[in-house]
Design a protein around this nucleic acid. Structure first.
Lengths: 189, 189
DNA sequence: ACCTGAACACCGTTCAAGT
DNA sequence: ACCTGAACACCGTTCAAGT
């Protein structure tokens, strides 16, 4: 017979993981506190003990999760390589959880996301880019925009898997091409 | 005494206008069928008569509204001018209703939006761009991304109006610069 | 400290009924 | 044809209570 499991204690991390899974598999609109509770084998009200501001805090945390990227620029790279590393990492993080993309592109950065943004600025400056502010904004816009188009396109009918794979490969090639062009455009004149 | 107005008949257009107003002023999460009914001085259930699929149809319509752009390329412009006109028009339409930006960037294009996309492709081809597909995607990504960053930034504290104005002017300059760089990058080699 | 149960105000949607 | 009223299942959140 199925033995009752020793209940794993709830935690902020487990809550966020479960929420990401629901959002990615069923969509943001179906992510409710009650369904989230079910997934965690707990009553919905228990979540408020770990996320005091409730659903608002949950949404913030999800946006932060896919948006607070860390990059280690090994060696002494030139600034375009730093920029490339950041852009690729940010894109990968967003593509991993398309269900919360709307939050990531829309909520103003807070906490860890804001720190990541500051780090990016500093690393670009250290790598020799004089005025990193506009570059950070342009890279951010480019990454957010291309991921948005890429994810949108994957919802464009066409359930054929091989066609889908061809398009994600295409997405990556397009991304690198556009990134090259952008970096040239960002070079101080 | 306040005379009761002759009731203006409900219509799809009035519903969408009211919904845009609520989303822009109070946020998407506060746009409910009941509140929308109140704004239209009607019971919420009356809306279903004009939008049979209910809230889902409403969301689709809002995304379509800010995303189905029409551009008239007067004369015989070169393709970069056509591209510029599209990009500016699309940006303006999105900035007009920041409350539904999340929908616009996230919902797969349908109906009028899809037609607009096709028209854009055709106009670029007619203006001399050999393979407009990648260019349309890149322009779309660029516009969506820069508007997302711009709107996100406007929610970044700083309620000072003159600072805000300075930043929207800055947003426009940044946009034109990036657009120039992108168009150079899109030129057939 | 951590979780539950009951309760409240609010939500989307249906359907029969009114005009 | 167009709108309302009542009803249903579901939602976020509170609070007192359990352990």
């Amino acid at each position: 017979m199925p033995a009752k499991r020793p209940p794993v204690p709830l935690s902020r991390e487990r809550i966020i993981d479960a929420a990401l899974h629901i959002a990615d598999s069923q969509g943001l609109r179906r992510l409710t506190m009650r369904r989230l509770g079910d997934a965690l084998e707990v009553e919905a009200m228990a979540i408020y003990h770990h996320l005091p501001r409730g659903k608002e805090a949950l949404m913030d945390a999800l946006a932060e999760h896919v948006t607070s990227v860390r990059v280690d620029p090994g060696g002494l790279p030139a600034w375009p390589d730093v920029a490339r590393a950041w852009a690729r990492a940010a894109r990968a993080a967003l593509l991993e959880h398309p269900g919360v993309l709307a939050l990531a592109l829309t909520k103003p950065p807070k906490g860890a996301s804001l720190i990541a943004l500051r780090d990016q600025s500093e690393q670009l400056a250290e790598a020799g880019l004089p005025d990193p502010g506009p570059a950070v904004r342009a890279l951010r816009a480019y990454v957010h925009g291309s991921v948005a188009v890429e994810v949108q396109q994957s919802g464009w009918a066409d359930p054929d898997a091989t066609v889908r794979d061809a398009r994600t490969a295409e997405g990556e090639v397009d991304f690198e091409h556009g990134l090259d062009a952008l970096l040239i455009g960002l070079s101080p004149k």
